[in-house]
Design a protein around this nucleic acid. Structure first.
Lengths: 257, 257
DNA sequence: GAGTGGTCTAGACCACGAA
DNA sequence: TCGTGGTCTAGACCACTCG
């Protein structure tokens, strides 16, 4: 273990770095050098205190920092174990709001063409991952830009699980996503959204409604909204490839940094 | 401010919760109730200590917890400000590894058909977001399953910025993604990946190579790899819709929880 | 029982921001 | 100048794990 200096200006960027920051850096370097190795135990807190002439509080702050970086795990009665020689990093796409999933929908308008209660047949049962015969509320429509006056953007189908289909505001216009209404009505929060993107040929009536030539390329996006293990809603949208592409961005993120 | 109880078994789940956990919960409830309101200041630490009969250490632990939940921000000389009445939550898609972006590629084999140095023309300049005339290493090939004996999965083009194109292991097979080779060779780490998914019709030669009928539906995935603001690589892949769809999943995540 | 990390107290000095 | 949060010390008791 190297000695810590009281000398200020050790680091030009952080003149007189706090001692726990200094220690955190030292520990990180030594772990990277293999002392202790990944899987091994750090010396006990009290030993570090004695060796470095620091209080337990300062030592704990340093160790906690490395824990938050995902390099250490601690367990009372056992010790502090090295689980990674470098800060754990991941690539992350994040959104403040599920609305960002379909941000294109802002300023658009959904003209509802169908609204009925249905029982899932075999094909629909697969899409909704439910047993054939299960009841769903089905809503279909066309999404257009410019408050409904622009060209069609998507052909939309929405399926709401029967248990969540009693929604007060569902009668009028659909200005907000349905999952939002469900969250408000039942006081729950969507915990997971699965999304699948498929390529397809837009043909037949769909092509006519979307005002593209039959045989055009399109994207089909299927979103499944979960609250815990329960599916509360499934939506599908068919978009002409000429008017829509799906963009996303993944950032490198270091946990707890 | 409500009083804290020393009484154990306040919470069936955590008998005798630590006092700082208790305080954190209390503060959260009161902030949700509007005391103090969002934008307002929490009482100073010393005042909380006195009012609650707790040490500064315990109070700080509680406050730090709410900070890590994104509800509070602190500034020396100013105070502790409420920035959110509820824990900040977001929806996150995360990966340990960029390889997960193309996990389907595992167990597949890329047969390289083209490898040359090119200068970007106008169209390519747009794809690569560079000036026409910039030099790139271009590699093209066909990805097949079952170690190259299965049916074609994708038609792939890769463009490596000239500055990063001197890669020692690039001569042989491409068992690993190119960006990995760049990261190793230059000691850098990809910080961001942008991805765009388009629908398209697979036609002409491409259809023949992919062994699908001309006019079939397909997905085109364009990935741009950044190190800071610099593009180091761009890849495009065309996948038959019948053999490929893109799935992702977003989890609700509460920061610091 | 011995040793670990988890929790907690009662002090203290400092750098920073605002009045 | 004064109060804030940031840092730090020197003690202490507890719950947990393990031999």
């Amino acid at each position: 273990m190297t000695e810590l200096k009281d000398d200020p200006h050790v680091d030009a960027l952080t003149p007189t770095a706090p001692r726990h920051v200094d220690l955190a850096r030292t520990l990180m370097q030594e772990i990277r050098a293999g002392h202790p190795p990944v899987g091994g135990l750090l010396p006990p807190e009290l030993e570090l205190c004695e060796r470095l002439g620091m209080s337990r509080y300062a030592v704990r702050q340093a160790v906690q920092k490395l824990c938050s970086l995902g390099m250490l795990t601690r367990q009372a009665g056992v010790g502090t174990r090295v689980v990674s020689a470098t800060p754990v990093s991941r690539y992350v796409q994040s959104m403040d709001d599920l609305g960002d999933l379909a941000r294109y929908a802002q300023g658009t308008h959904l003209a509802v063409t169908t609204r009925n209660r249905i029982a899932a047949d075999d094909a629909l049962g697969e899409l909704l991952s439910c047993a054939p015969g299960d009841k769903w509320l089905h809503i279909a429509g066309v999404r257009r830009g410019c408050d409904g006056k622009g060209e069609p953007i998507a052909l939309v189908h929405m399926y709401v699980a029967a248990a969540y289909a009693k929604l007060p505001k569902l009668s009028g216009e659909l200005a907000v996503p349905i999952y939002t209404l469900i969250e408000e009505q039942f006081g729950i929060k969507v915990t997971r959204v699965a999304q699948e993107i498929q390529g397809l040929i837009i043909d037949g009536e769909d092509a006519d409604v979307l005002q593209v030539p039959r045989g055009s390329a399109g994207l089909r996006i299927v979103r499944t909204y979960y609250v815990g293990p329960t599916v509360i809603e499934v939506t599908t949208g068919v978009h002409p490839a000429s008017r829509f592409s799906y963009s996303m961005s993944f950032q490198l993120s270091r946990a707890g940094a």
